[in-house]
Design a protein around this nucleic acid. Structure first.
Lengths: 206, 206
DNA sequence: GGCACTTTTGACAATTTTGTTAAACAATTA
DNA sequence: TAATTGTTTAACAAAATTGTCAAAAGTGCC
């Protein structure tokens, strides 16, 4: 679907590249397909961006940021523990609803080359250790106050993240198995914000 | 790492192919790498299996089965609802602990070509509609008996599956962010069987 | 050993994919 | 309008990947 545009340029190419890379991954993406998606000649890709890898890195960095920053941001706020949980859920489901292939793409490419996580994580100044420590402290504090039952912070964090992200990663499976069209799925995810919150709160109240 | 074996044959090749395909996916896998992994000449791959796609389909089918059958089996038993939940959790975490790349591989390849789910699902006689219906009925029944709080069956099923599977899909991310080595991770997953069960039961008790 | 058969390999061919280049084209400016 | 600059393309070159084949090597049998 080439666009009949007047300005075939960097942005046009990047948008096309995002689509193809996030759908197919680095190995499955074809420069030809990106060019076709952008409606231009393949050589232009090399004119604006040196090569496939350079293009990929630019796109991966923005997607990496989209995927991770919100999560880290929440833990720097001074909302209550339960409000933080609500924020995470809301944020994750909102973002992933808008960017259907984001989670799968980032996870796959990190699995393919785990050092990307370190490399791009440092570049964006992410500090997982600190984040996890804060999370653990907050849990301990809430446990002592009797607000939540004792629970391993790593397990709880994994539970929250899993509940939010997995449905999007496995979206093609879930849609088919539960016989949902796109709208039904999106609707279910919107309801999931409330549902997941209640599920998790219930799970951790003593 | 070619093996100094006496019987370079189908099985040797298949084992190598499983490793490469599940790690790299169809698009990222190289016939050369499979041959090297098996310690044989690349032409042999074509002698025993016609081509890359044929090889892939054989492997995908076995992995597809590994991934899905257990899940469907549980719902045909006549254990109590909570026991079924325990079974699912136990089974999923046990299987995925043994086959590190299984979930990521199957999910990715279905995302790449969703009709594979229909195609191989039929071939194995899986019936997701029936499974989901049974699950929903059982929930309704348990809700009426006051054993669990009202909850959308699709959401609950997604929650259970998410909690079990996501940690393995995102394993490279989780290991790095939480600074765990392989053993620590596996240990955490073993503990997770109990932890996840309690989490979910807590979440659904009224 | 010689024969029939299967297995294995190296060399080659075909195809796919990426990357380069020179020239055409367009826009801007002097 | 000619010159300069930046953009776009088709054609080509290079590299990577898959697939084929004939011959070599191995195996079992007479």
């Amino acid at each position: 679907m080439p666009k009949a545009e007047s300005k075939p340029s960097e942005e046009l190419i990047l948008n096309a590249a995002v689509k193809v890379f996030t759908r197919k991954g680095y190995a499955g993406a074809r420069m030809e397909e990106i060019a076709k998606e952008a409606g231009i000649n393949r050589a232009l890709l090399h004119y604006y961006f040196r090569d496939k890898e350079t293009m990929f890195n630019i796109i991966f960095e923005t997607k990496f940021k989209e995927f991770f920053t919100g999560l880290f941001g929440v833990f720097q706020s001074n909302a209550s523990f339960t409000e933080k949980i609500r924020s995470i859920i809301d944020h994750e489901i909102t973002v992933l609803s808008k960017h259907p292939d984001l989670a799968r793409f980032v996870i796959m490419e990190i699995a393919q080359q785990p050092d990307r996580l370190v490399q791009f994580g440092q570049k964006l100044g992410l500090n997982p250790r600190l984040m996890l420590e804060n999370f653990q402290k907050e849990i301990l504090q809430n446990v002592e106050e009797g607000k939540i039952r004792p629970i391993d912070g790593r397990q709880l964090l994994m539970n929250i993240i899993s509940i939010c992200i997995y449905p999007f990663v496995a979206k093609p499976i879930i849609k088919t198995m539960m016989q949902m069209d796109e709208n039904t799925f999106m609707d279910l995810m919107e309801k999931r914000k409330k549902e997941a919150y209640e599920f998790i709160i219930n799970a951790i109240t003593p």
